[in-house]
Design a protein around this nucleic acid. Structure first.
Lengths: 240, 240
DNA sequence: GTAAAATTAGACACTATTGTCTAAAACGTC
DNA sequence: GACGTTTTAGACAATAGTGTCTAATTTTAC
């Protein structure tokens, strides 16, 4: 028997009960969705076989066909499941943005680490990077909603948060959405290659990437009186 | 009959003649490699069928098996072909870096546009993004050489170029490789989502992305006396 | 023009996969 | 413990793909 080798980032909240029954069957549905996510992520849509998913989910093949009429139905269900979870994680993490930073440099860096850890480096993030890229053109409508609610919204939401800091004098930004996109880009600058090869950055790599990003971000958008590289005394931006 | 629908970015240079003969056969090899690249890119390795490639290359299936013993051999050949071309384009473009900038802002922006146009937005770039991500874990050794010679080298090469500018006082950079990675990240900040969905940015989008990137890059790393955006009286923090 | 080489279409065996069907077993509820 | 539901294993037809083989045809080289 094969256990789930790669734990999904599924939270323990109750799930939609659109299945045959509510209780014992629900866990089957979860098993299937998790296993299918892993296999689809590893093999792509056409490379994944229902049998492989069944084995990985410790479920008979027929059970999969009972729950999801055909392969494509299952695929769509998996995508929607992962997207929903990913967006939830995204906004949950966004809510931890340092509105009233004690130490802007440190607080932004820690926020960046949370962002990468919870939203980009986890299994769901990897799944979406892969599947959106390979199947995005084939199922345009499927991912459109996620794009609107996720990546597109994150720029404006994060932009609004930067705007607040800006109005309080902690940052000097003209175009908030642009600054948000650039913040995200800088955070991932050192990690792109790791993502591309399906790897997972170490904690040290994450911290260093975040520090580098915030450093440069503040060089560009920080308050004017900020020193530029290695000032001995940290400048505390304490705005009411 | 179906013509090649998507022109490859193949240059008209002579090709390695490792095939059965040199002349007429060479063009068949090229047709096959181009068609296979398109189909693999569109369908992934397991989704691509030899028949489909044969039709798209206007070649009989048997001819493909004559040149490349089996599907995987063809796949590896395609990968190597694309990687070689992509790296060539990369370093060819790097050689147009503005060593002696007339107008740093403008010259860097135009350089950034060349970089995205010639190396990232073309068919080879799309192919590599997709295939490295989906098959990179399955064929680690295959892509390792490309990573060493391409993406890894570009940071250090571009970093060295920034170092030159820095020593001449045009930039103020501590970590040149990091600045190079961040430059690339900023250039792609506005384009990531387009890439992810397999799209191609318009010329306007490319220009705007480049301008935004260079703007922020220079805010962070530009010479100290640089104006920052629209403050009436710039406050110069003159620290020796 | 001729000979060698390459290409082609078609048939072929083999394998893998999808999706259906059935009867037996396990499960949960009352 | 009996009932209805869900799950299971296995067989099954249908389809699609890989890789081989052959004989005819075309292309290329000399």
């Amino acid at each position: 028997m094969k256990n789930r080798t790669m734990a999904s980032s599924r939270p323990s909240t109750a799930r939609k009960d659109t299945g045959p029954t509510q209780r014992g069957q629900c866990s089957k549905r979860v098993s299937i969705l998790d296993a299918a996510a892993n296999v689809f992520c590893r093999e792509g849509f056409s490379g994944a076989s229902i049998d492989e998913i069944a084995i990985e989910a410790c479920v008979s093949r027929q059970t999969i066909y009972n729950h999801y009429r055909e392969k494509e139905t299952l695929f769509v269900a998996v995508i929607e499941d992962v997207m929903e979870r990913a967006n939830a994680a995204l906004f949950s993490t966004l809510s931890t943005f340092p509105d009233k930073p004690d130490n802007l440099q440190r607080d932004l860096s820690e926020f960046a680490i949370r962002l990468t850890t919870n939203c980009i480096c986890n299994q769901d993030g990897k799944f979406l990077r892969r599947l959106v890229q390979t199947e995005g053109e084939r199922y345009p409508h499927l991912f459109e909603g996620w794009r609107q609610q996720g990546p597109c919204k994150i720029s404006t939401t994060l932009g609004a948060l930067f705007a607040k800091l800006s109005h309080r004098g902690a940052l000097r930004i003209d175009d908030f959405d642009l600054a948000a996109r650039q913040f995200l880009a800088l955070v991932n600058a050192d990690l792109q290659m790791i993502y591309l090869f399906g790897g997972k950055p170490t904690e040290d790599e994450l911290k260093s990437a975040a520090d580098n990003a915030v450093d440069t971000f503040l060089r560009a958008y920080g308050p004017r009186e900020r020193e530029n590289s290695a000032p001995p005394a940290p400048i505390l931006v304490a705005v009411s």
